[in-house]
Amino acid sequence: MNLFEYVSSRQELVVELTLQHALVVALSIAIATIIGVGTGVLVYRRDRAARMAIATAGVFLTIPSFALFGLLIAPLGLGYPPTVVALVLYALLPILRNTVTGLRSVDPAVLESARGMGLGRRRRLLRIELPLAWPVILTGIRVSTLVTLGIAAIAAAINGPGLGDLIFEGIGRIGAVNALNQTLTGILGVVVLALVFDTLFFGVRRLTTSRGVR
């Protein structure tokens, strides 16, 4: 049985695992975006706070993923909850850092004129700063998504959802019939998802970025 035949024979399972994988990543990224952008907005004008927040998010990213998944079993059990929490922690740094960078790179003259026209703090943030920082923030979200797609495969170790199942099981019985095909199918699924998400981000970027700043 070659790889193609293997995938066709287990089509239903592969599709289900791929959708699970996409879902858990999308959910984690959505949560990480809310936390990351929110934290970025709170700290970008305070140098010390910004450095501390970014350093903390950086620490999360250095914890080996296998270890972090394992550590989360005790408080959160198995399956979705520890997976999502771990993926959110990994996704934070690029989103937070790009939010801070993006907000800080808004032209001071633009802010000065906005202030001089009578736009208050809230309006400046919502109407001027966030829209102008958005392309940079979106790039952070995209990087986080790609990082998380790979890490999510490890979640299979704690009974998490997604394509990691195929990879782990295949590796566990390597040498047996179709073990290699099983592993390759999992990897291929992650790669295909990465391409799909990337295309999606390209579209989102075009739709949500003003023609004036493209």
């Binding site: 032209d107 003259a109 633009v110 802010l111 000065e112 004129s113 906005a114 202030r115 001089g116 026209m117 009578g118 736009l119 208050g120 001027i128 829209p131 102008l132 970025t209 003003s210 004036g212 700043v213």
Partner: peptide, 23 residues
């Protein structure tokens, strides 16, 4: 309120500071 005051006074600076993402 300074924001309300500023809406009664037009403000033009050398660097202009037009909002690049708006028409």
């Amino acid at each position: 309120d300074p924001d309300a005051l500023r809406r009664r006074m037009g403000y033009v600076i050398q660097q202009i500071g037009l909002f690049p993402h708006m028409t």
